[in-house]
Amino acid sequence: MGFVVTVDAEKCTGDSECVDVCPVEVFEMQDNKAVPVNMEECLGCESCVEVCEADAITVEEE
């Protein structure tokens, strides 16, 4: 069982906090927005959700 990570590009401010805090490098920055590129690595810790001040990230169980 894995996790589905979604970033609302309209809400994302591009501060890259999620990139910095993710222990398994799920995100990378593309065009100043966070993009979940390694979603299969997600541990479901929701650290990214906690640091995202724009409330742009959701993590759901698959």
Rank of each mutant, 00 (worst) to 15 (best):
E60M: 11
C45F: 05
C22R: 01
E10F: 02
I57L: 06
C18S: 11
M39G: 15
V35M: 12
E53N: 07
F3M: 08
A54R: 05
F3D: 07
C52F: 07
V35G: 06
N38S: 14
E41Y: 09
M29E: 15
C52N: 08
V24A: 10
E53Q: 12
E28W: 00
M29T: 12
V24D: 08
V19A: 09
V51D: 06
L43K: 14
C42T: 07
T13S: 08
E61S: 10
T58R: 10
D31N: 15
E25P: 00
V37M: 14
C42W: 02
P23G: 09
D15L: 03
V19K: 06
M29D: 07
D55K: 11
E53M: 09
T58I: 10
P36R: 02
C12K: 02
K11I: 04
S47N: 12
V49F: 06
D15H: 03
V26L: 08
K33L: 14
V51A: 09
L43D: 14
E60S: 13
M1V: 11
V35Q: 09
E41Q: 12
G14C: 05
C52A: 11
E17W: 02
V59M: 09
E50S: 14
I57K: 01
P36W: 01
N32L: 09
E62C: 07
E53L: 13
E25D: 15
T6N: 14
M1A: 13
V4K: 14
E25M: 04
E46I: 08
A56K: 01
P23T: 10
S16R: 06
G2I: 01
V24Y: 04
E28V: 12
A9E: 13
V21T: 15
V59A: 11
D15M: 01
V4N: 11
D8I: 03
E50G: 04
T13K: 09
E17P: 00
E60L: 07
E10I: 01
A54K: 05
N38Y: 04
D55Q: 11
S16G: 04
T6R: 13
I57H: 04
C45M: 10
V4L: 10
V35D: 06
C48G: 12
C42I: 06
V26A: 10
A34H: 02
V35Y: 01
E46C: 11
E41A: 15
I57R: 01
G14V: 05
T13L: 08
K33W: 03
P36K: 04
A9W: 00
D8H: 03
V7Q: 06
L43G: 13
C22G: 08
E40S: 13
A34Q: 04
V4Q: 13
A54P: 09
N32F: 11
C12E: 10
A54D: 13
E46A: 15
V26F: 06
E40I: 04
T58Y: 01
D31R: 11
A56R: 02
P36V: 12
D55N: 14
V26P: 09
N38M: 05
S47L: 15
E53S: 14
E60N: 12
Q30M: 13
V37I: 15
V4M: 06
E62Y: 03
K33F: 02
E62V: 12
M39W: 00
E40R: 06
G44M: 08
K11M: 07
D55L: 11
P23Y: 03
D20K: 08
V24H: 06
T13A: 09
A56L: 07
A54Q: 06
